[in-house]
């Protein structure tokens, strides 16, 4: 199928009863926010600074409400269906990775509802950033994992690949706006996607990393890597696969709520016991945990690495701590 770009606004408007989220300017940077005017969408420039995980796993989310002193607890189930438009394949893949955490053992009710009620319309990444390394992590600029529809920008129009039943439902409501894609269109899209994949110049073979990490537990590389770490939350907050959260209570007047909010393993308070003891007392342990969690523990538990190669942590780290550099150090270290 094909969607002419000038019909994009109509396409989005034709989606009935769903809130459309797309990459739009919020302050100075892109993040996924509800689209009120399709003209505000910025789907073609670089990937959003804040990944679309913020839609299914909001930074701050009310879990339940109660009145001070009362014992009646009213859970705050999220409602409404959403469509995420312009999701990059790496971020979509990240969501299916995060699913592992929220759906193992017990389902997380909030994430479950938001995730089930959202459809992902992806946009193939035709102009990857310098620090993209999705192809090394099992994805690619046109990877379809986790997406319901994949769009490829053909200039005047989008080639539209419907990937799931959810995707089909979305197209049904906008059937009139779509036209048949020719085989030339498909060929062109394929060419563009392949060109993009070839443009990704940062590469690594991570297959040996999970096995090497336990052996490097006491390695001096962690001291070296973490020496310049500031202990801020950029790498984890903006990581599409990071999912840790904190739970807090808040009161405003008579009304109280318990909410959860993103937390970061790079903060010292993250593991600080009330006694004052901290099992990860310095940035060395915290950095080591972050890498081990992504490339060792997560693999042990869920058989997949918790990294999709989106490059955000490399782009935005204030002191140029580069996850690819760390991985290559891990790969090269004598065991």
């Amino acid at each position: 199928m094909k969607l002419s770009k000038d019909k994009l606004a109509d396409f989005l408007a034709a989606i009935p009863g769903k809130t459309v989220f797309g990459p739009q300017l919020s302050g100075e940077t892109l993040r996924f926010t509800p689209v009120t005017r399709p003209g505000n969408l910025c789907p073609t420039v670089n990937n959003a600074t804040v990944p679309p995980k913020s839609v299914v796993f909001p930074q701050t989310e009310t879990m339940f409400r109660f009145e001070q002193g009362a014992t009646d607890i009213r859970t705050a189930e999220p409602s409404g269906e959403t469509v995420l438009f312009g999701v990059r394949p790496c971020d979509a893949r990240a969501m299916s990775i995060v699913d592992n955490v929220f759906f193992w053992d017990v389902d997380d009710p909030y994430y479950l509802i938001r995730r089930t009620n959202s459809a992902l319309v992806g946009l193939a990444c035709l102009d990857p950033c310098v620090n993209c390394f999705c192809t090394s992590m099992g994805g690619g600029p046109a990877s379809t994992e986790g997406l319901d529809i994949l769009l490829t920008d053909l200039g005047e129009s989008y080639l539209l690949e419907v990937l799931t039943g959810k995707g089909e439902m979305l197209c049904q409501s906008a059937e009139k706006l779509l036209s048949q894609a020719s085989s030339a269109d498909k060929e062109a899209a394929k060419m563009l996607q392949e060109k993009a994949a070839a443009q990704i110049s940062r590469q690594i073979d991570p297959s040996g990393i999970p096995a090497r990490l336990p052996a490097l537990w006491e390695s001096p590389i962690w001291e070296k890597i973490s020496a310049s770490c500031l202990g801020c939350g950029i790498c984890t907050y903006l990581c599409p696969t990071c999912h840790c959260f904190d739970m807090q209570d808040e009161t405003e007047g008579e009304e109280s709520r318990r909410y959860r909010t993103w937390d970061s393993c790079m903060f010292s308070e993250y593991t600080l016991h009330a006694s004052g003891h901290n099992p990860r007392p310095t940035r060395r342990e915290r950095t080591r945990n972050r890498i081990n969690h992504k490339f060792s523990y997560f693999v042990d538990k869920f058989k997949v690495m918790a990294c999709v190669g989106c490059g955000r942590c490399i782009n935005l780290c204030p002191v140029n701590i580069d996850i690819l550099d760390i991985l290559s150090q891990v790969g090269e270290q004598a065991l």
Partner: peptide, 18 residues
Amino acid sequence: ENRMKCGIGKCGRCNAGN
């Protein structure tokens, strides 16, 4: 024992190794 928030293996902080 470790610091915990959710108690059901989601919030991420109580891990010792894997």
